[in-house]
Design a protein around this nucleic acid. Structure first.
Lengths: 349, 349
DNA sequence: TTGTAAGCGTTATCAG
DNA sequence: CTGATAACGCTTACAA
């Protein structure tokens, strides 16, 4: 049953041409006569020949492999999954027009914050470029290894303490600024933040956006109204209960994700208040949850698919022109999706 | 900057030994003197040498690549994402103890139902084995290609019209039977099904489980209480409204996923009924949504991580013993998670 | 336009 | 236990 697979030499024999010519046909080289091309193509078809990628790689000195390393919380958070799969889709979508194959590796945040992370990950691997998808700081010593090895890489959603060649991210800061602008128009002045994991990079940027937006409007930043949880529903619930006891009491609450917003909404309802008449609540992610909760959630949608696309584009151009010196970081805008969990501020000041 | 990477020959020179010996050290071959081994290891360290995987593959005749092909609805459904990422995690978790690298390819259902799907997908690729992750029928002619090429493969969550070598799935049928048993104990006799996409394999099996469970209990299967939607919240809402008009009116509703269940709950509430006193509602997936809706949803959790693990185990053993004839299909049990959307049937019969 | 042959970096088979 | 040396399948000067 297991007939040996045909090789390029078999094709050459059958077509009566040389291996060189066959190879040229395979690689779309211009200087091949139509006649020869035809013969080779027939032989290929007849033999069911498929070139062996490893042999090709070896001869050409390229691997045609791009590796995606996903750096995950441990245990992995559902909202991370929800964010990462569209990114992967975007990556693959862009990659299918290229000769590159996509290989994946999954690591944990703790590992990526140690120095030999990529060295270990890439042990025994031969890749042309690396995509790094994560939400936590990357140990810069790991990145040095990539530089030494001359492996082009693009960071997606994460960064290191030292500046890196190329980064793709969405605009956490701007998104929060935008939603606060919107809420200020509605008359809100007392804002609270129910954050997710405090050290996570997206959250760091959003917290900064939160402060900056308020300061820009000459609104007061109340430290007691800024709290952090763990992106799970329960922490949203708990933190909202705390907020209801604070002084001043906020009228608008920005949450780290839709799930925490759902928890906050539950807390508000449990205490007998109404949304949006008593409180405006904003989520993040535009997940299904935002449509399921009552009232439907105003939320922020990150351009995940586009991020994947752009990251691949950048990586490919880095691979082409090996020594580009660009140190470029792309920040894509988010979309504010307004539903009914936000409304006019009814509290007299 | 881009110093050439060291090769095995460099290591041989520096250590004063032959390439053969270096190779033996690399591959943990027993017949190497401790002294030689030490010298080689020193040289490797000094040169920062890493073997080139493609050269290795070529010489050994294996690729060390396992490909995961994900077959998706178009556009991709969020609930599919939610299911697939844990499977991938399970796959990777098992693979990191092996020499195999994981490569991924994403295709759409329409493509996989045509005959040349895998031929196209694997064009120019050299893999040792294939994992096929999907929820829709696979064209069996595509699989013939794999057989001819002698590429071991494992289907995850899907199947073809002809029996295949190895399949891993979760027990859709049994899960529905179990939940109906549970509801029967609570006194329910009139069951409705709000299905997801009707032709999708998981749904096919669940619908069959639905009928079988009722018949086994000598309960009537009302065709007008079996409806199919598209796994989105709106169709759950709409179909529930329809069910409220049917005769007989069901008291227990099994939904295709948590999202449709959320829609159904909304419809029930909108019409002024209570859960679980008037209706019991069951979801599927144990997604975050099941904890967000009110009341929290009784649902079914599939062993996604374990499926990934098992699939890899199977594939690896198929790769080892090339011509195993097993035609084995593994069905893993689901977990019924009881929350408060289900309860005693209060309707007098 | 085509053929020849020398690599690409490893492994594996033989002798020694 | 070790060293030559021929594969592995393909690409690519270089010649013709």
């Amino acid at each position: 049953m297991s007939k040996k697979r045909a090789t390029l030499i078999d094709v050459a024999k059958l077509s009566g041409l040389s291996t060189g010519t066959v190879s040229r046909v395979l690689n779309g080289h211009p200087s091949v006569s139509d006649e020869a091309r035809k013969k080779v193509e027939d032989a290929i078809k007849k033999l069911n020949y498929v070139p062996l990628s490893t042999a090709r790689s070896l001869a050409k000195g390229v691997s045609n492999v791009i590796m995606l390393s996903m750096i995950e919380e441990n245990p992995i958070l559902p909202s991370t999954w929800r964010y990462e799969l569209p990114v992967i889709q975007g990556i693959y979508d862009c990659l299918r027009d290229t000769p590159y194959n996509l290989q994946v590796g999954i690591g944990f945040v703790e590992e990526a914050q140690k120095s030999k992370f990529f060295e270990n990950l890439l042990k025994d691997k031969y890749i042309d470029g690396l995509l790094i998808l994560g939400s936590w700081p990357i140990d810069h010593r790991s990145l040095i290894y990539l530089e030494e090895r001359n492996i082009p890489y693009v960071l997606i959603g994460c960064r290191s303490s030292v500046p890196t060649r190329a980064e793709v991210n969405f605009d956490n800061h701007g998104a929060v600024v935008e939603v606060i602008e919107y809420l200020v128009q509605l008359g809100h002045t007392k804002f609270a933040l129910i954050g997710g994991l405090k050290e996570q990079l997206h959250m760091v940027d959003r917290a900064k956006g939160f402060r900056d937006a308020l300061l820009a409007r000459d609104l007061k930043v109340y430290p007691n109204l800024i709290k952090f949880g763990d992106y799970q529903i329960d922490s949203g619930y708990r933190l909202m209960l705390e907020l209801l006891e604070e002084d001043p009491r906020p009228t608008a609450i920005i949450c780290g994700n839709d799930l925490m917003a759902a928890g906050a909404i539950k807390a508000i309802h449990d205490k007998g208040y109404k949304i949006p008449s008593d409180f405006s609540v904003v989520g993040f992610d535009d997940s299904e949850i935002s449509k399921v909760v009552d009232p439907p959630l105003t939320t922020i949608k990150a351009p995940t698919f586009e991020m994947g696309n752009l990251a691949v584009e950048k990586l490919c151009s880095m691979i082409q022109q090996k020594d580009m010196e660009l140190e470029e970081i792309a920040i894509l805008p988010c979309e504010l999706i307004i539903r009914s969990s936000t409304g006019e501020c009814n509290q007299k000041n």
